[in-house]
Design a protein around this nucleic acid. Sequence first.
DNA 1: AAAACATTGCGTCAGAGATT
DNA 2: AATCTCTGACGCAATGTTTT
Length: 271
Amino acid sequence: MTDPSTNHGNDLENAQSISVVQVPSLSQPIQVQSVIQSNQPSVIQTAGPNVQTIQVVRKRREILSRRPSYRKILNDLSSPVAVGKIDEESNSSQSQDGDSSDVATNLSSTGIQYQQVPVSVVPSGTIQISNDGTAGTQGLQTLTMTNANPSTTSATTGATIVQYAQGPDGQFYIPGTVQAYQIAASGTLPQGVVMHTTGSPMSSPQQLSEEAARKRELRLLKNRDAAKECRRKKKEYVKCLENRVAVLENQNKTLIEELKALKELYCQQEG
DNA sequence: AAAACATTGCGTCAGAGATT
DNA sequence: AATCTCTGACGCAATGTTTT
Protein backbone atom coordinates (compact mmCIF):
# COMPACT_ATOMS: atom_id res chain seq x y z
CA MET A 1 0.00 0.00 0.00
CA THR A 2 1.44 3.29 -0.97
CA ASP A 3 0.50 6.74 0.10
CA PRO A 4 0.67 9.29 -2.69
CA SER A 5 0.91 12.08 -0.18
CA THR A 6 4.44 11.21 0.70
CA ASN A 7 7.57 11.18 -1.37
CA HIS A 8 9.42 9.17 1.19
CA GLY A 9 12.30 7.44 -0.50
CA ASN A 10 11.45 8.34 -4.05
CA ASP A 11 15.00 8.98 -5.07
CA LEU A 12 16.08 5.82 -3.38
CA GLU A 13 13.54 3.84 -5.29
CA ASN A 14 14.86 5.26 -8.49
CA ALA A 15 18.42 4.68 -7.51
CA GLN A 16 17.84 1.10 -6.54
CA SER A 17 17.26 0.06 -10.07
CA ILE A 18 20.37 -1.31 -11.68
CA SER A 19 21.94 1.37 -13.82
CA VAL A 20 25.19 2.12 -15.55
CA VAL A 21 27.26 5.13 -14.62
CA GLN A 22 30.50 6.46 -15.99
CA VAL A 23 33.16 7.30 -13.45
CA PRO A 24 35.96 9.55 -14.71
CA SER A 25 38.69 7.53 -13.06
CA LEU A 26 37.49 4.33 -14.65
CA SER A 27 37.85 3.38 -18.25
CA GLN A 28 34.71 1.25 -18.26
CA PRO A 29 31.20 2.14 -17.24
CA ILE A 30 30.18 0.31 -14.10
CA GLN A 31 26.98 -1.33 -13.09
CA VAL A 32 25.44 0.09 -9.96
CA GLN A 33 24.41 -2.66 -7.62
CA SER A 34 23.13 -0.81 -4.64
CA VAL A 35 22.87 2.65 -3.26
CA ILE A 36 22.99 3.17 0.43
CA GLN A 37 21.98 6.59 1.69
CA SER A 38 19.89 9.16 -0.03
CA ASN A 39 20.71 12.75 0.61
CA GLN A 40 24.19 12.70 1.96
CA PRO A 41 27.37 11.52 0.35
CA SER A 42 26.14 8.14 -0.71
CA VAL A 43 27.91 4.87 -1.11
CA ILE A 44 27.52 3.11 -4.40
CA GLN A 45 28.72 -0.44 -4.53
CA THR A 46 29.55 -1.67 -7.96
CA ALA A 47 28.86 -5.07 -9.36
CA GLY A 48 31.24 -7.23 -11.29
CA PRO A 49 34.71 -8.56 -10.60
CA ASN A 50 36.13 -5.23 -9.54
CA VAL A 51 33.82 -4.28 -6.74
CA GLN A 52 34.37 -0.67 -5.82
CA THR A 53 32.87 1.85 -3.52
CA ILE A 54 32.19 5.33 -4.82
CA GLN A 55 31.08 8.39 -2.92
CA VAL A 56 28.30 10.28 -4.61
CA VAL A 57 26.57 13.38 -3.37
CA ARG A 58 22.90 12.98 -3.94
CA LYS A 59 20.41 15.74 -4.38
CA ARG A 60 18.36 16.35 -1.30
CA ARG A 61 14.81 15.25 -1.51
CA GLU A 62 12.70 18.19 -2.39
CA ILE A 63 9.47 17.38 -0.62
CA LEU A 64 9.72 15.33 2.48
CA SER A 65 6.67 14.95 4.57
CA ARG A 66 6.06 12.12 6.90
CA ARG A 67 2.66 10.55 6.87
CA PRO A 68 0.70 10.62 10.11
CA SER A 69 1.13 7.67 12.39
CA TYR A 70 -1.25 4.78 12.02
CA ARG A 71 -2.50 5.43 15.50
CA LYS A 72 -3.33 8.99 14.58
CA ILE A 73 -4.99 7.97 11.33
CA LEU A 74 -7.09 5.34 13.02
CA ASN A 75 -8.10 7.60 15.83
CA ASP A 76 -9.08 10.21 13.28
CA LEU A 77 -11.38 7.71 11.65
CA SER A 78 -14.13 8.49 14.08
CA SER A 79 -16.92 7.74 11.67
CA PRO A 80 -19.36 4.92 12.52
CA VAL A 81 -17.83 2.57 10.03
CA ALA A 82 -14.39 2.81 11.54
CA VAL A 83 -13.75 -0.57 13.01
CA GLY A 84 -11.66 -0.40 16.13
CA LYS A 85 -9.04 2.04 17.22
CA ILE A 86 -5.48 1.44 18.18
CA ASP A 87 -5.26 1.41 21.91
CA GLU A 88 -2.16 3.25 22.99
CA GLU A 89 -1.93 1.46 26.29
CA SER A 90 -2.08 -1.95 24.74
CA ASN A 91 0.61 -1.08 22.30
CA SER A 92 3.38 -1.12 24.79
CA SER A 93 2.96 -4.80 25.43
CA GLN A 94 2.36 -5.95 21.94
CA SER A 95 5.86 -6.71 20.86
CA GLN A 96 6.08 -9.29 23.53
CA ASP A 97 2.67 -10.75 22.85
CA GLY A 98 3.04 -10.83 19.14
CA ASP A 99 6.49 -12.25 19.12
CA SER A 100 6.33 -14.57 22.03
CA SER A 101 7.19 -17.38 19.72
CA ASP A 102 10.36 -15.57 18.88
CA VAL A 103 12.11 -16.84 21.95
CA ALA A 104 15.62 -16.78 20.64
CA THR A 105 16.53 -13.66 18.77
CA ASN A 106 19.67 -13.36 16.77
CA LEU A 107 21.21 -9.94 17.02
CA SER A 108 22.70 -9.67 13.61
CA SER A 109 25.24 -7.03 14.49
CA THR A 110 26.80 -9.09 17.20
CA GLY A 111 25.80 -12.61 16.36
CA ILE A 112 24.73 -13.01 19.95
CA GLN A 113 21.69 -15.08 20.75
CA TYR A 114 19.32 -13.46 23.19
CA GLN A 115 16.69 -15.21 25.17
CA GLN A 116 13.38 -13.91 26.41
CA VAL A 117 12.65 -14.57 30.04
CA PRO A 118 9.48 -13.53 31.82
CA VAL A 119 10.21 -11.10 34.61
CA SER A 120 8.11 -9.18 37.04
CA VAL A 121 9.24 -5.99 38.70
CA VAL A 122 8.60 -5.74 42.39
CA PRO A 123 8.12 -2.46 44.25
CA SER A 124 11.58 -2.42 45.70
CA GLY A 125 13.02 -2.04 42.23
CA THR A 126 14.59 -5.45 42.18
CA ILE A 127 13.50 -7.94 39.61
CA GLN A 128 12.20 -11.44 39.78
CA ILE A 129 13.19 -13.79 37.05
CA SER A 130 11.04 -16.77 36.37
CA ASN A 131 13.27 -18.64 34.00
CA ASP A 132 11.26 -20.86 31.76
CA GLY A 133 14.08 -23.30 31.51
CA THR A 134 15.06 -22.68 27.93
CA ALA A 135 18.79 -22.53 27.86
CA GLY A 136 20.27 -19.16 27.20
CA THR A 137 23.27 -18.87 24.97
CA GLN A 138 26.43 -16.94 25.57
CA GLY A 139 25.14 -15.66 28.88
CA LEU A 140 23.05 -12.88 27.42
CA GLN A 141 19.31 -12.79 27.81
CA THR A 142 16.37 -10.61 26.98
CA LEU A 143 13.99 -9.85 29.78
CA THR A 144 10.36 -9.14 29.23
CA MET A 145 9.57 -6.89 32.13
CA THR A 146 5.99 -6.56 33.21
CA ASN A 147 5.35 -3.98 35.85
CA ALA A 148 3.72 -5.76 38.73
CA ASN A 149 4.02 -2.84 41.06
CA PRO A 150 0.58 -1.88 42.30
CA SER A 151 1.86 1.12 44.22
CA THR A 152 3.05 2.89 41.14
CA THR A 153 0.85 4.46 38.53
CA SER A 154 -1.60 2.11 36.93
CA ALA A 155 -0.75 3.51 33.56
CA THR A 156 2.55 1.72 33.54
CA THR A 157 1.13 -1.67 32.84
CA GLY A 158 3.16 -2.29 29.73
CA ALA A 159 6.00 -4.68 29.32
CA THR A 160 9.51 -3.69 28.44
CA ILE A 161 12.35 -5.66 26.98
CA VAL A 162 15.87 -5.38 28.20
CA GLN A 163 18.83 -7.46 27.20
CA TYR A 164 21.21 -8.45 29.94
CA ALA A 165 23.73 -10.87 31.24
CA GLN A 166 23.91 -11.70 34.90
CA GLY A 167 27.35 -11.82 36.38
CA PRO A 168 28.57 -13.97 39.23
CA ASP A 169 28.15 -10.99 41.51
CA GLY A 170 24.46 -10.94 40.76
CA GLN A 171 24.64 -7.71 38.87
CA PHE A 172 23.21 -7.29 35.41
CA TYR A 173 25.22 -6.45 32.37
CA ILE A 174 24.13 -5.50 28.90
CA PRO A 175 25.97 -6.28 25.69
CA GLY A 176 28.82 -4.12 24.53
CA THR A 177 30.02 -3.07 27.89
CA VAL A 178 31.43 -4.37 31.12
CA GLN A 179 29.77 -1.65 33.13
CA ALA A 180 27.15 -2.68 35.59
CA TYR A 181 23.63 -1.42 35.16
CA GLN A 182 20.75 -1.33 37.47
CA ILE A 183 17.48 -2.41 35.99
CA ALA A 184 14.91 0.14 36.95
CA ALA A 185 11.23 -0.53 37.28
CA SER A 186 9.35 0.31 34.15
CA GLY A 187 7.52 3.53 34.65
CA THR A 188 10.50 5.27 36.13
CA LEU A 189 12.26 5.15 32.81
CA PRO A 190 10.48 5.32 29.48
CA GLN A 191 11.36 2.21 27.54
CA GLY A 192 15.03 2.76 28.28
CA VAL A 193 14.77 0.68 31.40
CA VAL A 194 18.53 0.48 31.74
CA MET A 195 20.12 3.06 33.96
CA HIS A 196 23.84 3.56 34.40
CA THR A 197 24.73 3.45 38.03
CA THR A 198 28.24 2.27 38.66
CA GLY A 199 31.70 2.75 37.30
CA SER A 200 34.04 5.69 37.17
CA PRO A 201 33.38 8.67 34.92
CA MET A 202 33.98 7.89 31.26
CA SER A 203 37.49 8.96 30.53
CA SER A 204 39.58 6.53 28.53
CA PRO A 205 38.98 6.05 24.81
CA GLN A 206 38.16 2.43 25.50
CA GLN A 207 35.46 3.41 27.95
CA LEU A 208 34.11 5.94 25.52
CA SER A 209 33.90 3.43 22.75
CA GLU A 210 32.29 0.96 25.09
CA GLU A 211 29.79 3.60 26.03
CA ALA A 212 29.14 4.32 22.39
CA ALA A 213 28.68 0.64 21.69
CA ARG A 214 26.32 0.33 24.60
CA LYS A 215 24.30 3.28 23.39
CA ARG A 216 24.18 1.81 19.94
CA GLU A 217 22.96 -1.55 21.23
CA LEU A 218 20.32 0.21 23.25
CA ARG A 219 19.23 2.28 20.29
CA LEU A 220 19.08 -0.76 18.05
CA LEU A 221 17.11 -2.64 20.66
CA LYS A 222 14.62 0.19 20.97
CA ASN A 223 14.34 0.61 17.25
CA ARG A 224 13.85 -3.11 16.79
CA ASP A 225 10.91 -3.00 19.14
CA ALA A 226 9.62 0.15 17.53
CA ALA A 227 9.73 -1.48 14.13
CA LYS A 228 7.81 -4.46 15.43
CA GLU A 229 5.26 -2.14 16.96
CA CYS A 230 5.01 -0.14 13.78
CA ARG A 231 4.44 -3.24 11.68
CA ARG A 232 1.78 -4.43 14.04
CA LYS A 233 0.01 -1.09 13.86
CA LYS A 234 0.30 -1.05 10.12
CA LYS A 235 -1.29 -4.48 9.92
CA GLU A 236 -4.06 -3.33 12.20
CA TYR A 237 -4.50 -0.22 10.11
CA VAL A 238 -4.75 -2.23 6.89
CA LYS A 239 -7.23 -4.60 8.50
CA CYS A 240 -9.26 -1.64 9.63
CA LEU A 241 -9.26 -0.21 6.14
CA GLU A 242 -10.30 -3.54 4.70
CA ASN A 243 -13.15 -3.74 7.15
CA ARG A 244 -14.12 -0.22 6.23
CA VAL A 245 -14.12 -1.10 2.57
CA ALA A 246 -16.33 -4.09 3.25
CA VAL A 247 -18.79 -2.02 5.25
CA LEU A 248 -18.90 0.74 2.67
CA GLU A 249 -19.38 -1.77 -0.13
CA ASN A 250 -22.32 -3.21 1.74
CA GLN A 251 -23.77 0.23 2.31
CA ASN A 252 -23.31 1.06 -1.33
CA LYS A 253 -25.02 -2.12 -2.39
CA THR A 254 -27.94 -1.44 -0.07
CA LEU A 255 -28.30 2.13 -1.30
CA ILE A 256 -28.24 1.02 -4.92
CA GLU A 257 -30.99 -1.49 -4.25
CA GLU A 258 -32.98 1.12 -2.38
CA LEU A 259 -32.62 3.56 -5.23
CA LYS A 260 -33.68 0.91 -7.69
CA ALA A 261 -36.79 0.11 -5.67
CA LEU A 262 -37.70 3.78 -5.35
CA LYS A 263 -37.26 4.26 -9.07
CA GLU A 264 -39.57 1.37 -9.79
CA LEU A 265 -42.13 2.74 -7.37
CA TYR A 266 -41.90 6.13 -8.98
CA CYS A 267 -42.33 4.68 -12.46
CA GLN A 268 -45.40 2.75 -11.34
CA GLN A 269 -46.99 5.88 -9.92
CA GLU A 270 -46.21 7.82 -13.10
CA GLY A 271 -47.61 5.15 -15.33
C1' DA B 1 12.17 -33.26 -7.25
C1' DA B 2 14.41 -29.10 -8.35
C1' DA B 3 14.27 -24.45 -9.79
C1' DA B 4 12.10 -20.15 -9.99
C1' DC B 5 9.24 -16.94 -8.14
C1' DA B 6 6.26 -14.80 -4.43
C1' DT B 7 5.26 -13.75 0.23
C1' DT B 8 6.26 -12.70 4.92
C1' DG B 9 8.78 -11.06 8.76
C1' DC B 10 12.86 -9.27 10.68
C1' DG B 11 16.74 -5.92 11.73
C1' DT B 12 18.66 -1.83 10.36
C1' DC B 13 19.08 2.91 8.64
C1' DA B 14 17.56 7.53 7.67
C1' DG B 15 14.99 11.26 8.56
C1' DA B 16 10.57 13.82 9.76
C1' DG B 17 8.05 15.05 13.51
C1' DA B 18 7.21 15.03 18.61
C1' DT B 19 8.82 15.62 23.11
C1' DT B 20 11.79 17.22 26.73
C1' DA C 1 18.80 22.21 20.87
C1' DA C 2 19.00 17.60 22.05
C1' DT C 3 16.77 13.49 22.32
C1' DC C 4 13.19 10.31 21.32
C1' DT C 5 9.56 8.13 18.51
C1' DC C 6 7.71 6.54 14.43
C1' DT C 7 7.74 4.81 9.87
C1' DG C 8 9.30 4.18 4.81
C1' DA C 9 12.76 1.79 2.60
C1' DC C 10 16.15 -1.68 2.04
C1' DG C 11 18.35 -6.22 2.19
C1' DC C 12 18.19 -10.68 3.93
C1' DA C 13 16.44 -15.24 5.27
C1' DA C 14 12.81 -18.44 5.78
C1' DT C 15 8.81 -20.31 3.96
C1' DG C 16 5.19 -21.10 0.61
C1' DT C 17 3.59 -21.59 -4.14
C1' DT C 18 4.02 -22.31 -8.96
C1' DT C 19 6.50 -23.90 -12.92
C1' DT C 20 9.57 -26.95 -15.37
